[in-house]
């Protein structure tokens, strides 16, 4: 049962000495940038339910920094996420949930915060692999594409997303996404509430109760947004994909001509349409696909 049987006469480590500041940073990164990013991300995706154009336009905007994008991704999202997750796992390990013994609401929330953190982390790993791929190196992307990962093509945002969700009998990924996103929404909203106590924003029980109400309302809104985002990616059928792709391609070409979209064929869904062409053997598509497949060689 003993937790610290360590026999150290040495000075406390850097981490121990600065645990307070590091944990405040943990709390902060959960909200900014991670939580904030999640809100933007979900809202963007929810727009797909509205129209393919809005969604694609948003993705063009996100990808406008071009070569700087990986820097933003890693500095603004992946590193904070790894920090938040790594420390989160350590924090969760320092505690011992007892919500089956003490069944108070706040105690259950404490346990759920930890479980949703774990679920969210696993989900985010799958999500990044599934769509983003993590690293932009072409050989890596090619390799993982074969096993169903790295499926997202920013310049064919909607269609590649829908395609990706349809992998695995069209049920596995949607379920994973639904569970993962809702877990993260809970984790974020409950995290805001506890951060308010940690930082000393809401102090009295009355203030905490009011904060709970606000957080619940925010959570409901965010849930609706995430369900919309989920639906936007899950509900379109195969026939919709072709239509979406056509619109996206048109937007890409027009954008390149207008100079608003940096030309980058790697961000187009070329592998996807090759596969689709192979499957259907359709001539028209085949022609397009062959142009596309030959492209990198030229």
């Amino acid at each position: 049962m003993s937790d610290s049987n360590s026999d150290s006469n040495s000075e406390p480590s850097f981490f121990t000495r600065h645990e307070f500041a590091i944990r405040r940073l943990h709390s902060l990164t959960g909200i900014v940038p991670l939580g904030l990013y999640m809100c933007v991300h979900l809202t963007t995706n929810a727009s797909l339910l509205g129209s393919v154009e809005i969604f694609q336009r948003a993705v063009f905007l996100i990808h406008s920094p071009g070569p700087l994008l990986p820097l933003i991704e890693w500095g603004g999202i992946f590193l904070p996420l790894l920090f938040h997750a790594g420390l989160g796992i350590w924090i969760a390990k320092t505690g011992r949930s007892n919500s089956s013994q003490y069944q108070f609401t706040s105690n259950k929330r404490y346990s759920w915060q930890r479980w949703t953190g774990f679920i969210g982390l696993v989900y985010l790993f799958l999500h990044v692999m599934h769509l983003h791929g993590g690293i932009h190196a072409e050989s890596w992307m090619d390799a993982i594409y074969q096993i169903g990962f790295g499926q997202f093509s920013p310049y064919n945002a909607g269609s590649s997303l829908v395609n990706a969700m349809n992998l695995g009998y069209g049920i596995i990924w949607p379920v994973i996404y639904l569970v993962g996103v809702l877990a993260l929404v809970y984790h974020f909203v409950n995290g805001i509430w506890t951060a308010g106590i940690t930082w000393g924003l809401w102090i009295s029980p009355e203030a905490q109760a009011r904060a709970t109400k606000v957080c619940v309302a925010f959570g409901v809104i965010l849930t609706v947004v995430s369900l919309a985002a989920w639906a936007g990616a899950v509900f379109p059928g195969k026939e919709d994909v072709a239509e979406m792709r056509a619109i996206e391609d048109r937007m890409y070409e027009a954008g390149v001509v207008a100079g608003t979209v940096p030309e980058n064929e790697h961000k187009r869904d070329l592998r996807g349409r090759a596969a689709a062409a192979e499957e259907s053997g359709d001539a028209a598509d085949g022609e397009q696909a062959s142009t596309a497949t030959t492209e990198p060689a030229s």
């Binding site: 645990e19 405040r24 924090i91 007892n98 003490y102 108070f104 706040s106 105690n107």
Partner: peptide, 19 residues
Amino acid sequence: LIAPGGIQACGNAQNCVAV
């Protein structure tokens, strides 16, 4: 309270006040 073992270890389970 900000030294090792200080307030940062609180996990906001709020069992303390309940019991």
